[in-house]
Structures are given as C-alpha cells and as structure tokens.
Design a binder for these strands. Structure first.
Length: 115
DNA sequence: ATAATGACTTTCA
DNA sequence: TTGAAAGCCATTA
C-alpha cells in the first residue's frame, strides 16, 4: 500500500471511462437515425461535453461497433473537416436511408434519434 | 501550471 | 437562412 495522497472518494477516474460511455451511447443510435454531439453527450450522462464527443471520436479507434457516421452537428450538418471523412459519412448515411440536402444538411426534425 | 486546439452549441445581427 | 462571436470543457503541448 502506497501512500496515495488523498484517495478521491469517487470522482473522475480513468480517462477512458468517459470515452467508453460516449462510445456506448453512440452505439445505441438506431440505424436510419442521427444524433447531435450534444445529444450524445447528454445521453451519456455528460451534459455540456459535446466537444468531448467529437474529441473522443477523433482519438478512439472507430470501427463497425461505433456508428460514428450517425453523429452530426446540431445544425444538422456533417461537422468533420479533414479529408476522407465528410464524403464517407455522407455515403454511409445515405446508404442507411438518411436523406441529405445538396448542401449536406440533414433534417434533424425527421432523423433525430428519439429516446 | 498556463496557453492553444478542437468531429460543438447557442445567441445575436 | 446564413454568418460571426462568445461560451464551455477535456486533452495536448
């Protein structure tokens, strides 16, 4: 037993814990629907951490287990910037039945994930 | 510890 | 509706 300087009761802990929570929430988004970063954060129990969601998606090893393409900005638009992303996300959403405006806008009123 | 960055959101014009 | 500015928060340098 080492001398831990003041064990925290149970506040934050592992960095990944929060990330896993976010990823788990994204995994719950049904096919054909989309969710905003803020909504995902809130559902994950992290209200106000919308930026974190984006950050996690950036650092986390995305895979088929995480439908990251169903996560869009509150404006109903694809947020990612940086090649290889936007076009791909658009294709994935279209293949799921989500209609996207020519400007890359999505009708949140229609496709927003309802909990 | 402070500064800068970013797959965000909301508000105002 | 579109665009700019401010607010917020965790991670990185």
């Amino acid at each position: 037993m080492s001398k831990r300087r003041r064990d925290r009761p149970q506040r934050e802990m592992n960095p990944p814990a929060t990330h896993l929570r976010i990823l788990a929430t994204i995994a719950r988004i049904p096919e054909g629907s989309v969710a905003t970063y803020g909504q995902v954060a809130k559902e994950a129990g992290l209200p106000g951490r919308a930026r974190l969601v984006g950050y996690v998606l950036r650092v986390s090893p995305l895979g088929a287990e995480v439908p990251w393409h169903r996560v869009i900005a509150a404006a109903g638009r694809i947020s990612i910037r940086r090649g290889g992303g936007p076009g791909l996300q658009r294709e994935l959403l279209l293949s799921e039945g989500v209609e996207i405006d020519s400007r890359g806008m999505i009708e949140l009123s229609t496709y927003r994930w309802k909990t």
